[in-house]
Design a binder for these strands. Structure first.
Lengths: 130, 130
DNA sequence: CTTTGTGCAAAGGCTTTGCATGCTT
DNA sequence: AAGCATGCAAAGCCTTTGCACAAAG
């Protein structure tokens, strides 16, 4: 949680690499398990701390599902919107230039910021709806 | 969590009345405190259970703030979108028929449902941004 | 060598559940 | 009278923190 004085460790490298290979949002727990399956034993605490660092540094996005669990994913460089399932965290990227502009205008009018890169639209995906 | 076999109790009446008088999203804890200030002593457990019932029944909206706490508010009858601060839960209702249509289309294309009445756009409000 | 990172165990915060009692219907 | 509702205490979950040891720079 300090400046840009972060050290490169086996654990961090493994987690970042894993995130780079994954598409959607995953919980710390899940990421921890995946690391274990790869033979990369990383403490759950470290997973949490590293994810927190990444989020703070703007290198990862975090969001909360309805039951309170947090899910993370590497922040992609391109700007886009997410259609996120509030139940399982499944996310779909959607384009919508016109909407982006509209959202920006509305947010600005209400003094809201920090929505330029990630606008989340929540719903329930087909699988969870059953 | 059962059918429409809910009974009218002092506690439920007090909570629903309180929610009706409140604008934005509040945490269970906060609602519990507000009830106490009114002399309406309701167990925190009951507040949680009642809120859950209301959400399930579609009579209230719930969302999670970044730190994991859930906040609730009475669902208004009109259809609208929310611009919600992911830090404090402050919400602003915004209109946007064109966007509503767009969101509906996008969601449908991806098999997402249950977004017709509440589309949440997250950002950080002016007060929290400081 | 100094400083940051790691990991275990324990603590924290919010939410849910078990169970006996109370109240609505 | 019968069956939810309530509330207290305890358990559950996810997440964070304390502390000693290990590793990076």
């Amino acid at each position: 949680m300090n400046r840009a004085d972060r050290r490169i460790t086996r654990q961090r490298t493994a987690l970042v690499r894993l995130l780079d290979e994954i598409e959607g949002f995953r919980s710390a727990r899940h990421l921890h398990e995946l690391l274990g399956e790869r033979g990369e034993d990383v403490g759950l605490t470290t997973v949490y701390r590293t994810l927190q660092t990444l989020v703070t540094a703007g290198q990862a996005d975090m969001l909360r599902l309805d039951h309170g669990e947090a899910v993370y994913r590497r922040r992609s460089s391109r700007r886009h919107h997410h259609l996120v399932c509030r139940s399982c965290g499944h996310a779909v990227e959607v384009a919508g230039p016109a909407v982006a502009a509209w959202v920006r205008r509305i947010a600005g009018e209400h003094g809201f910021s920090d929505i330029a890169y990630t606008v989340e639209i929540f719903g329930v995906c087909g699988r969870c709806a059953r």
